[in-house]
Design a binder for these strands. Sequence first.
DNA 1: GTGCACCTTCCCATCATGTCAAGGTCAAGC
DNA 2: GCTTGACCTTGACATGATGGGAAGGTGCAC
Lengths: 136, 136
Amino acid sequence: MNIGEAAEATGVTAKMIRHYEQIGLIKAAGRTGAGYRVYGPNDLSTLSFIRRSRDLGFSIAQIRDLLALWQDRARASSEVKRIASDHIAEMRAKMRLLEDMVGTLEHLSANCHGDARPDCPILQQLATGNAETSCC
Amino acid sequence: MNIGEAAEATGVTAKMIRHYEQIGLIKAAGRTGAGYRVYGPNDLSTLSFIRRSRDLGFSIAQIRDLLALWQDRARASSEVKRIASDHIAEMRAKMRLLEDMVGTLEHLSANCHGDARPDCPILQQLATGNAETSCC
DNA sequence: GTGCACCTTCCCATCATGTCAAGGTCAAGC
DNA sequence: GCTTGACCTTGACATGATGGGAAGGTGCAC
């Protein structure tokens, strides 16, 4: 199986497959006489594993660890769970940041009439750090 | 005022001030005879504006537009409001993505006993795309 | 006149991914 | 056999915002 087929089968682009090989996330693929990379069922499983992990937002470093655990039959599931929990915590932290920013900005936006007039509490806040809101 | 003092006063690192100058987000600062950048009150206001905008998650491109509007006395507040609304929508979209990922991962994590045993629904899901959850 | 803190420019790194370019390979059709 | 087009190869460069560091000039206090 060539890289293009592997890419189509797993949803990982050929570009990224080469990249993952280069950074050592996956082992170097076999080659044909002409230098084409060749992939078998095991490789496809690994690539699909990586793609699902990326879909869940895991970083390459985390995926590296998850792959190692996956291939270790004596692994403890607590290790996996810890990585997942850490990742959940990171994502929650990002969500909180976004929530705060959205909250502030919505508040400002709600007080902006948004018409042709130039005065604007959003710019006011950005300029002075202190919005003259009429609401509270 | 030198760049270090300007950095301390506004919370924008000297590194980033130089960078913002280089990409044309702010106009080139004046220089002393020795080539040191010099900043005045107006420059500090601009830098603070940028920092507050970054704190609200605006991109450099958006800040460029906001700065232009800020410095345009004839601006329409509707323009500002539109930029803010777009940004809120982007942040909400990111939050939704995170929520989905967190939801899926928490579900898997809840079904992972997380002890010394090797079987693990998280890895199961990543490997097969189909978790053998016992819950539903 | 020395030492130290600060400034300058320039280059490289992050993280995951995309784009582009220049060239080699394979299979099909003529 | 030769051409064509799809595919492959490597390599370089870009993104966005920021950090780090090196090598060298400047300013001020002692």
